Amino acid sequence: MICIKKIAALLLLVLLQSCASAPGSAKAFGPSAVVSTQQGKASYYGGRFHGRKTASGEVFNKNILTAAHRTLPFGTRVRVTNLKNDKSVVVRINDRGPYAKGRVIDVSEQAARQLKMKHDGVVKVKVERLK
């Protein structure tokens, strides 16, 4: 009886792991997972905000894949694509902003690195809300 429970638990663990995807993996979300799309300018924030509380109450970490958006609910995952070089990254909304005119999203420094936008600072992006 104990052996059957252990086997069932092991099978469940294997099943759950096979369904998991790498954090921030854009490939885990195909086109059918896109709920809505927005285009505009993105900037990034890091250094001086690192360690401060975000609007969601979470402590900001410039080294994880997060972003600030004016209206999307906290926890929403979005794919941000740099339209200059077609690089994309999936981030989680955990803050409010951006407050600069014409910008639609502020990404963390880590997300900016993956989007290859740190040198430019502000780039045109496509933001796709994911299921």
Results as ranks from 00 to 15, higher is better:
Ile105Gln: 02
Arg77Glu: 06
Gln17Phe: 12
Leu12Ala: 11
His50Lys: 10
Lys84Ala: 15
Tyr99Leu: 12
Lys27Val: 15
Pro23Ile: 09
Glu109Val: 01
Tyr45Met: 01
Leu15His: 04
Ala67His: 04
Asn63Thr: 10
Val89Gly: 04
Lys87Gln: 11
Lys6His: 15
Leu15Val: 14
Lys101Met: 08
Ser18Thr: 14
Pro73Trp: 09
Asn82Glu: 02
Tyr44Leu: 08
Ser108His: 00
Asn82Lys: 05
Arg79Met: 12
Val35Glu: 12
Gly75Thr: 04
Val78Pro: 00
Pro98Tyr: 02
Ser43Pro: 00
Leu65Lys: 00
Ser21Gly: 15
Asn85Cys: 09
Val14Arg: 04
Ala42Trp: 00
Asn63Cys: 06
Ser108Asn: 05
Asn94Phe: 02
Pro73Glu: 03
Lys5Leu: 12
Gly46Tyr: 06
Val35Leu: 13
Gly97Ala: 04
Leu12Ser: 13
Ala26Met: 03
Val78Arg: 05
Phe29Trp: 14
Ala100Lys: 11
Leu16Gly: 01
Gly75Phe: 02
Gly47Lys: 12
Ala28Glu: 01
Leu65Met: 14
Asn85Ser: 05
Ser36Arg: 08
Gln17Tyr: 10
Pro73Lys: 09
Ala8Gln: 08
Val34Tyr: 00
Asn85Asp: 07
Val91Arg: 00
Ile93Asn: 02
Ser108Leu: 05
Gln110Val: 10
Arg79Val: 02
Ser43Gln: 06
Gly24Asp: 01
Ile93Gln: 02
Gly40Gln: 04
Val78Tyr: 01
Leu72Pro: 04
Val80Thr: 02
Val78Thr: 07
Asn85Lys: 04
Lys6Gln: 13
Arg48Ala: 14
Lys101Thr: 13
Val107Gln: 01
Cys19Thr: 09
Glu58Leu: 08
Ser18Phe: 07
Ser43Phe: 01
Pro98Trp: 04
Val34Glu: 02
Thr81Arg: 10
Leu83Ala: 08
Ile93Trp: 00
Val107Lys: 00
Arg48Cys: 08
Arg92Gln: 10
Ala68Lys: 01
Gly47Trp: 12
Gln110Asp: 11
Ala67Phe: 04
Val59Ser: 07
Lys27Trp: 12
Lys5Glu: 10
Asn63Arg: 12
Val89Glu: 01
Ala26Arg: 03
Ser88Val: 06
Arg70Gln: 14
Ser32Val: 11
Gly24Cys: 07
Phe49Pro: 00
Thr81Ala: 11
